[in-house]
Amino acid sequence: MREISYRQALNEAMEEEMMRDPDVFLIGEEVAEYNGAYKVSQGLLEKFGPKRVLDTPISEAGFAGLGIGAAMVGLRPIVEFMTFSFSLVAFDQVVNNAPNMLTMSGGQFNIPIVFRGPNGPAHQLGATHSHATEPLYSNFPGLKVAVPATPRDAKGLLKTAIRDDNPVLVLESELLYNIAGPIEDKEVELLIPLGKAELKREGVDVTIICYAQTVRMALAAAEYLAKQGIQAEVLDLRSIKPLDRETIISSVSKTHRCVIAEQNKPFCGIGAEIAFQVQREIFDELDAPVLRVAQEEVPMPYNERLEAAVLPSQEKIIEAVYQVCYL
């Protein structure tokens, strides 16, 4: 085992898949000569040349759609959005053309494409640059949505996404790019299936369901709670779609209490769906109503103190755990 950063893990995933398959190419703003706005594509232009690593103009709808068109005839584009907040400019391409094509064509055209880039709030970027888009994209059948939280998951999920024959969104996080974590050696082919959650920490008293940015908060909360005598289980979804219902149900059946820590707005958010699934499947197993820790329901303020108040946090998760444990 070695340690690499989340950024490096994504870079390795792209490098390995581009080595493996000449049909894979990368397009997006600043991905080539600038080496990526967040340096995720560092060195790829040098390795693969301008035919396969292409800087685009600032035309999200244009290059997202171009990727989909190329995928219709069998190429396997990786489309980087500088942030998923900008993917909203390409929303029609991502939610109409990518996931609908297979159905609309009666099964004639699948779209093997990956849309990737940072998603969710970063630090004081204000309302337009802080969107957590996972509830939006999870609402469209035909799209798969991965939300890696660790370097290992980032690499394994992105590699799987590139090999998937369907459109997959890999929602990364600017706040995680610098985080290091253990990962297999480069020689090991690391593929992590979409739709498989992972227990990041085992426990018996409460299940904290989390993904992407909230995994670190949940782990820190569990660490703190352990000292209070509460053994929290931390379940990292890793993919929102497909959703690993089985692992969710089995964990909550064991702990009987559930807190969902999500990075998006609560209304029609990921937690709303999971809470529904849990009560639908194991109503009788629950010892307390499911609680959600999410953003406050406001456009993101720039002010640092207010932003912190909007975001989910370790403290808010701990507070929710106390509530479901009636403490």
Binding site: G62, G67, I68, G69, N97
Partner: peptide, 13 residues
């Protein structure tokens, strides 16, 4: 909405 797709088809060739 299909014009970028057309660019993509041409890109592929």
């Amino acid at each position: 909405g299909h014009l970028p797709l057309a660019s993509g088809l041409a890109f592929a060739s």
